[in-house]
Each structure stands twice: as C-alpha cells, then as structure tokens.
Simulated scan of single mutants.
Amino acid sequence: MIEVGKIGLVFNPYGGKMGEIPSDATPFPHRKGNIFKMQYSVTWKDPSPGATENFLNEVKMLYSYMTPFVSKNPRSTYLNYRDLDIGVNDFGKNSFEEGQVYGSKYFNDNFDRLVNIKTEVDPQNFFRNEQSIPVRPSKA
C-alpha cells in the first residue's frame, strides 16, 4: 500500500451470528468461513488529466496483489461495493451469460436460485441495472 500511494483498505470482520446463518438462507452468501470483507478505496482532489487513470490503476494494483489471499473460484465480491470492472450486462442475446460473470461473484451458489426467482417474477426483465440479476433465456 505504501508503494501504490493513497489507497484505502478496510477490513470488515465477519463471524459470530453471521456464520450461524446458512449461506443460502438469504441472497447474501458471504457467511461461514469468511473472516472478513475487504473494501478498496481511493480519494483524490487532483483535477489534472492523468489523475483519475493513475489513482484507479493504483487501486487495481493493490486488488491484483491481494489475489493469493482472497476467495477463489469465483473471487467473490460484495454487491453493495459495486464493481463494474467485473462485468456489466447490455441485456442483449447474451444477457444471461453476461449476468453470470458478475452474478456468480456477488451471489456465489445463490445465483441460479436468484435467476429462477427473477425469471418467474419479472420475465420481461423490467427491473434492471447494468449488474442486475438476469432472467433465463426463453426456450423459444
């Protein structure tokens, strides 16, 4: 962190009661076996042309450095710390596959169950954003 600059790294502890709730009891799967959640951040006031790229690259360097120390297959992430770098959905013909990329990271094994619910409740996918749960492709 010293090498890359003004990067923040927050550890939110998990465990206790959270670990007693099964990972499939709610959409939020990050429970038993997770020691903590990490949040990467950077703040800057520099309006110069290269500042944004520089600071974002520093965060990406730290994120990459942490790879051996975090969850794998998939590298999980927390939905409320939205990260468009892990995938977005354009809601075209590959909508489900695009959603699977980020959805499996946010929801782990709960993703398929959430897709089934979304497909049942909102088959036209009216309620959506660039990282929302997709619907299953129709079997037409």
Rank of each mutant, 00 (worst) to 15 (best):
A140I: 10
I2F: 10
D83N: 14
D24S: 13
G16T: 02
D109Q: 12
Q39Y: 14
K139C: 03
M66E: 05
R136S: 03
V135M: 05
K93G: 08
K93P: 14
G50T: 15
V70N: 06
D46Y: 06
P49C: 04
F107V: 08
F111M: 07
H30V: 01
K45H: 12
Q100S: 13
Y106G: 05
N54M: 15
F36K: 03
Y14I: 00
F91N: 04
G33N: 01
R31F: 00
R31W: 07
N54Q: 15
G5K: 02
R136P: 00
T119K: 07
F91M: 03
K6V: 12
K93R: 12
K118L: 08
K17Y: 10
D122Y: 06
N54W: 02
T67P: 01
F127I: 14
P49K: 10
K17F: 05
F69S: 11
N57T: 07
M61P: 00
S23A: 14
G92I: 08
E58D: 12
E20H: 02
S23G: 03
N34Q: 01
K139H: 08
E120V: 00
D24P: 01
I117R: 09
V135I: 15
F11A: 13
D90F: 07
P74R: 09
N89V: 02
S48A: 12
F11E: 09
S76G: 13
D46A: 10
P27C: 09
P137Y: 03
D122P: 04
N116S: 12
M1G: 11
V42F: 08
K139V: 05
